[in-house]
Computed example of a mutant assay.
Amino acid sequence: MIRITRRLLLGTSAAALAAPGIASAQATTLKVKVFPGLANLPLFAGQHTGAFERRGLNIVIENTPNSDVLRNGLAAGDHQLVVAGVDNAVAMAEAGHDIGILIGGDSAFNAFYVKPEIQNWAGLRGRTLIVDAPNTAYALVAYKMLAMNGLPRGSYEIRPTGGTFARYELMFNDPTAHASMLNPPFSLQAEDRGLRRLSTVTEAVGPYLGNAGWAMRAWAAANRDVVHRYLQGYIEGIRWMLAPANTDAVTALLADRLRIPAPLARRNLALLTAPETGSAIDGRFDLQGFRTVLAVRAEVLGSWGGTPPAPDRYLDLGYWERAVASL
């Protein structure tokens, strides 16, 4: 089986990932920080089809090793945009950073996986759950899923180890790594290699907004036209990747960019194109799913006194509305 390599996922080549044919002096370069995986297909599609290039943008995709690098780098201006688990945006806001969520995405298709010898939830008592960061995103959902199945915090160990790729590797190479949340393509590869899936996020908590895009509000306000063109290209990428007529081309692109076999790429694409549960049309923001994100954070961490706030404080969707209207 062809597997994703650390060299591919933890580093990035600007020359390879930038939209071709744009001289840096003629285009605005935007750095977009991401976790490796399926969620980046709109960016890949926008590059591949020239949707960004036609708008004078040179998009450089940078893979992050963990949430801290992603969040801290955005706040420091090391990169201008993020596409990742939206709870990271909430965490940034709660840490005092003025972020604005610009566009929606998908549920992230995360699921809870265990080593094959663990038969059920009860088998995790006293075992180790490996997470990216212990207080954001899918770690919080994992705690809730465990609690729903009789395992409160304290009945298992928690070990931060970094992003999905690092956890995927540890699930096979570290005998003390017993459970982890995984997202595609790693989750599908994990199943092929024998890991046991106990539940998906949406099976456990219902509608859930996984991935979204955001930026610092001050940067977006100072670069309105750039944000507008970026969102136009991003939405055009979504439309291309979801069009049934493009299935073969999208499969080939996904296989190339994630370095996975075509059959596996097709299985991943099927997740994104599923009518009810796939990627949001035009990146429309899933408000119900975002309310679930806030509710899980409030319940698990006790944030906001246990009562989730109104979502509007985190949203800056006017940029998206204008971009969609212009296409």
Rank of each mutant, 00 (worst) to 15 (best):
P116A: 09
I158R: 06
R167H: 11
T128A: 07
I103F: 02
D87Q: 08
A142W: 12
L140V: 05
M171G: 03
Y156T: 07
L81Y: 04
G85T: 12
F172C: 04
A142E: 06
L129Y: 06
I130C: 02
V131Q: 05
Y113R: 05
A93F: 14
Y113F: 15
G96P: 09
I118S: 05
F112P: 01
A108N: 12
Y143I: 12
R159C: 04
T136G: 07
I103M: 08
P134E: 14
F109V: 03
A84G: 04
L140W: 12
A177H: 14
N120Q: 08
G162D: 10
M181P: 03
A95Y: 03
Y113L: 07
A147N: 04
Y113I: 07
I130G: 11
V141Q: 08
T176N: 12
A93C: 05
L146V: 08
A84V: 01
N110Q: 15
A177F: 13
A89K: 03
V82H: 08
S107V: 01
E157F: 14
V131I: 14
A95Q: 05
H97W: 00
M92N: 07
L81Q: 08
A89H: 07
L182R: 03
D87I: 04
D98Q: 09
K115S: 11
A177E: 02
L102I: 09
M181W: 01
R153P: 02
E94V: 00
I101N: 05
F165V: 10
L182H: 02
I101F: 05
I158C: 07
A122R: 06
Y168T: 14
R125K: 08
Y156C: 00
R167L: 10
Y138R: 13
R125H: 04
F165Q: 13
V82K: 01
M145T: 09
V82Q: 05
L146G: 03
F112W: 11
R127H: 10
G154F: 01
T161P: 00
N120P: 00
G96V: 03
N135R: 13
D106C: 13
E169K: 13
A93N: 13
M145R: 05
A147F: 00
E169C: 09
F165D: 13
D174Y: 02
R127T: 12
P175F: 05
G162K: 14
A91N: 03
G104Y: 06
G150P: 14
Y138T: 15
G96Y: 00
P116F: 02
D87R: 06
A133H: 15
W121E: 01
A111S: 14
N173T: 15
M92G: 11
D98I: 04
E117N: 11
D132A: 13
E94T: 10
Y143C: 06
I130F: 07
A111I: 07
I101P: 09
R153T: 09
G126M: 01
L102E: 06
A91P: 09
A95T: 07
A93V: 06
M181V: 11
Y156K: 02
V131W: 12
L102Q: 06
L140H: 10
H178L: 04
Y168H: 10
D132L: 04
F165L: 15
R167E: 11
Y156G: 01
G104P: 04
F165M: 13
L129F: 09
A91T: 11
S155H: 14
A108S: 15
E117Q: 10
D174R: 07
M171C: 09
T128W: 00
T176H: 11
G150E: 14
D106A: 14
A142H: 09
H178R: 08
A147L: 12
P152V: 02
